[in-house]
Amino acid sequence: MENCNMKRGFFFLRDCDYPAHQSCSSCGKSFCNEHLRLKPGISAPFCLDCLGKTMQQSIQGKDKGVSTRDNYDDYYYDTAWCYGYRSNYYSSGSYKPWYFGSVNADDSDFNDSDIRVFDAASESDDPDAEAFDPEANVFDS
């Protein structure tokens, strides 16, 4: 049986060890019951990442009316809020989570800190180094 696809944690991400039960209606990945909630209004199962992001969007759009946040009152003081908050926090660029802890994450997955090294702007300033050029062949034998 497939394991839950959720990464738990905030400063450190770890794999969830529980078996997946159902798919998220938004992203389609499978999750365990702990990481799925019914989305208010449509009563479809959403994973905490997708639900959290929706909650953050509704909080940011609170000027338009408080009612949007009211829909998520049950989840606002719940773990679901953390998942949306961490998504915002990571994307703000001030933090990249570590992949270590008492539960080992699959360290062959590339995280944001791996990826950012390969930005075109991150290429070495050394004139010896190669800048991004689709025609350049680094692996020319």
Partner: peptide, 17 residues
Amino acid sequence: IELPARYGNISSRTCAK
């Protein structure tokens, strides 16, 4: 082996991955 020559900031952790 070849990418570190192009991207100087690659950490050993990324290379290991």
